[in-house]
Structure formats: structure tokens, C-alpha cells
């Protein structure tokens, strides 16, 4: 069973519809029990870092996610779902992230913010990622301490980490569910990794 984690942020249909297009059923859930039983976990996120972390904690989801990641279950974080894997964010000072990865989330300081639109994905040496355009909506981006976990980069008035990958944890700053064929391709590869 694939679970899409619902922490009360709204639109999760995009991810569910994209999986359905790939012939895969997923359940949308906010129950820690479902997360513990899942085969694969997708954590989409929109809105603010602080709101998301507080919701994950209040709903008991954070611990379930951490356990699942520790057990080696394939995990995919999307957008803020990437950002909360880090320790902290400039967006919500004083609210700790999940701390799966060391590093912090910073705000763009050049160009229009948020970055909205299609930008180029430049993969590092990682078979999950190919070159192409993906759809972004973000004001913040991750700066991992360990550069080896950066799986792809993108340029927005400077290079930033647009994808992270370390063992069973994959996370993308863009929205694969809204990135047309490029995004569906990535989801397809992730489902078989």
C-alpha cells in the first residue's frame, strides 16, 4: 500500500491522480497507523514550514514518518515535504524540522519570489533523475550540509538543490504531479526503485 500523507493542507488529489495515471492506487491518510503499515510513503506539502511541522507533530505523524524512514521504506517528499526533512527554516524560526538531514532552509533573495513556473533539472549522477523541466512553486530552498545527498540542481539566480536522495529517502523541491510527462516519468521510476 502506498500512502499519501494528509496533514490538513488541502490539495492532495494531484499526487493521487498522477499515481492513478500510472496504474497505482494510493490512499490519502492522516493516521500514523496507516503510515506504519505502508509499503511506500509520499509526503506532499504546501503552505508554510511551521504550520506543516506543527501539524505533523500534533497529529502524531512525525514519529511514524521517522520510524518508516529508519526502517528503510521508500519515502518521497514533495516541496515543503522536502524542506521539513531538514533541521530548520528561515520561514519559521524556532520551529524544528524533522532533522532527517542536516542543513537548513533559506529564502530566495533575488528575482521574483515565489519562483513560479518551469525550471530545468540538472541531475547529478543519479539514475532516478534525468534532465528536463519541472514545475516549481517555492520561496525557500534547502542547503544540505552534506552535498553528497544533492541528486539534482536547478538555477534560480544561483544554483540550488532541487532534488535530494539518500538511501530510501528521495525528496524534490518541484511538483512531479504537475510536471507533465517529466513528472510522471520520475514518479514511475521512483515506484520501481
Amino acid at each position: 500500500m502506498i500512502v499519501i500523507v494528509d496533514y490538513g493542507s488541502g490539495n492532495l488529489m494531484g499526487v493521487k491522480n498522477a499515481l492513478k495515471r500510472l496504474g497505482v492506487d494510493a490512499i490519502i491518510t492522516s493516521k500514523p497507523k496507516d503510515i506504519r503499515q505502508a509499503k511506500r510513503i509520499i509526503l506532499p506539502g504546501v503552505g508554510a514550514f511551521g504550520f506543516m511541522m506543527q501539524s505533523l507533530r500534533r497529529m502524531g505523524i512525525e514519529d511514524a514518518l521517522k520510524e518508516a524512514i529508519k526502517e528503510g521504506k521508500p519515502f518521497l517528499g514533495i516541496c515543503i515535504g522536502l524542506q521539513v526533512l531538514f533541521e530548520k527554516s528561515e520561514e519559521s524560526p524556532g520551529i524544528a524540522g524533522m532533522g532527517i538531514f542536516e542543513g537548513s532552509i533559506m529564502k530566495f533573495h533575488k528575482g521574483k519570489v515565489p519562483q513560479i513556473g518551469w525550471n530545468r533539472i540538472i541531475p547529478k549522477d543519479d539514475p532516478l533523475f534525468v534532465e528536463g523541466y519541472a514545475y516549481f512553486v517555492n520561496s525557500y530552498f534547502a542547503i544540505p550540509d552534506d552535498k553528497k545527498i544533492v541528486a539534482a540542481t536547478t538555477d534560480y539566480f544561483g544554483e540550488f538543490a532541487s532534488a535530494i536522495r539518500d538511501k530510501n529517502v528521495t525528496a524534490v523541491q518541484f511538483h512531479p504531479e504537475k510536471s507533465g510527462e517529466y513528472g510522471l516519468g520520475l514518479l514511475r521510476r521512483w515506484l520501481s526503485c
Binding site: 490539495n11 488529489m13 494531484g14 491522480n17 498522477a18 514545475y135 511538483h175 504531479e177 513528472g183 510522471l184
Partner: peptide
């Protein structure tokens, strides 16, 4: 549209309330 398109889309026209916005976003509008 959300079931058929995997690119972002906007819905507009006569939207007046927060409830309607919620319903449109839950239905799959970006």
C-alpha cells in the same frame, strides 16, 4: 481536469467565498 491534466491549472469566474475556493482546490485545481 485534475484527472486528465498533469500540468498546473487555474479556475476562475465568479468565485466569491472561501468555501468555494476550498472546494475548487480540493477538487484538484492548483
Amino acid at each position: 481536469a485534475a484527472q486528465e491534466l498533469f500540468i498546473p491549472f487555474t479556475v476562475g469566474g465568479g468565485i466569491t467565498s472561501i468555501e468555494e475556493i476550498r472546494d475548487l482546490l480540493s477538487a484538484g485545481a492548483d
